[in-house]
Design a protein around this nucleic acid. Structure first.
Lengths: 129, 129
DNA sequence: CTTGACCTTCCCCTGACTGGAACCCTCATA
DNA sequence: TATGAGGGTTCCAGTCAGGGGAAGGTCAAG
């Protein structure tokens, strides 16, 4: 398969696939004309990466996960720990964003949103209370 | 004030303050020795920026917000609209992260987390069902 | 033979900083 | 007077995960 084929079948842009080769996540062969030549196993890896990235794992996490996936003698505890640490980070981000949302919601609610200049949003940002 | 003073009083690292000058958000004067020389109004702006960034506004949003803050004839509707657009983005991010959290939570729950290799997390990532 | 779709490498760009090197300024102390 | 600590300055490079686009090679169809 050429890169366009694996791109459409894996759901990843060709640019991203080249980048993943660059950083050593996949190692496709080359045809005589210099084109990358992807095996089914490469496609499988790319789909794996696509799903892991969609779950928010970093590239380095993905590298580790692929290593665990290919290691027949892995312990599921190692995978679970990685996933739990990632989950904790996601929950931290959610909490941060929710705090922003709550503050912003209050400010927006208090703002008339008309043609007058008086605005509690700017008042808050400027430190007035 | 020197940069160290405004850094501790505004809550922003000195590096960040230099960066904000670089991109034109603030324009401190210079002393004879070449040091940046900050007025109270600069400190006020930096604190404004610090709070706006903490609410997740982008630098470009902050630039707009500062402009509105300094424009005595602004309409609060303009501020409100910016804030509402930002709120919508935050809510989108929260929804994305919650979806990740939920999926990840299910996978983690199903993983024994012991020394055996069998792992539903890897199974899911690899596309098996 | 040409056209258009595909592929290649290469380099720069993103946001919002952060780290570090190399150097300058000021003040207190030995 | 030398020196050392603790400010400050500029500039360069790196972060993360790719995206955009240029310049050029390859291939199948008409």
């Amino acid at each position: 398969m050429n890169i366009g084929d694996v791109a459409s079948r894996s759901g990843l842009p060709a640019k991203t696939i080249r980048y993943y080769e660059d950083i050593g996540l996949i190692k496709p062969h080359r045809s005589a004309n210099g084109y990358r030549c992807f095996a089914e196993s490469d496609l499988h890896k790319l789909a794996f990466l696509c799903r892991a990235r969609a779950l928010g794992f970093t590239i380095e996490d993905c590298r580790t996960l692929m290593g665990l996936y290919e290691d027949e003698s892995r312990a599921s505890a190692d995978v679970k720990q990685l996933a739990q640490e990632h989950l904790a980070k996601i929950e931290g981000k959610i909490a941060d964003l929710q705090a922003m949302r709550d503050t912003l919601g209050v400010l927006i609610k208090g703002c008339a949103g008309d043609s007058r200049p008086d605005c509690p949003i700017l008042k808050d940002l400027s430190g007035e209370r």
